[in-house]
């Protein structure tokens, strides 16, 4: 899985690409923990190029969201592909996360 990190004035955007499963989730978890350690608690995860998410991927994102919120920030999601979005709906995690259709909407909502 490819990961790319960008920083705006107040936000960190983590772009993921590929399959988010039990094999690749540890890499994402490590990246999220590093960002949190560095003090980045307002994170957008761009899922536009993620074509598969399993329960390990979901758990990794929930863990990141909880840690961000504990630190006074949040972890939000961008651009879920339709088959991936269905898994969020199935587990009702679409209610737990802020999910934005595109980057412009997310940045505007976050006051950027």
């Amino acid at each position: 899985m490819e990961t790319q990190v960008e920083h705006t004035e107040r936000l960190t955007i983590l772009s993921l690409s590929g399959r988010f499963d039990a094999h690749t989730a540890p890499q994402v978890r490590e990246t999220l923990l590093r960002l949190l350690d560095e003090g980045h608690h307002h994170i957008l995860v761009d899922m536009a190029r993620v074509n598969f998410v399993d329960s390990t991927g979901l758990s990794t994102l929930v863990g990141g969201m909880k840690r961000c919120r504990q630190a006074g920030g949040d972890l939000s999601l961008l651009q879920l592909q339709p088959p991936v979005r269905i898994i969020f709906e199935l587990t009702r995690l679409d209610k737990a996360f802020e999910i934005y259709p595109d980057r412009e909407t997310a940045l505007a909502s976050k006051g950027e």
Binding site: D54, S55, L58, S59, G63, L90, T91, A96
Partner: peptide, 15 residues
């Protein structure tokens, strides 16, 4: 899993 309080495990079986 408790869907009202999202946790970090238990989604596999639910799926």
């Amino acid at each position: 899993p408790d869907l009202e309080e999202p946790g970090e495990s238990g989604y596999g079986l639910m799926i």
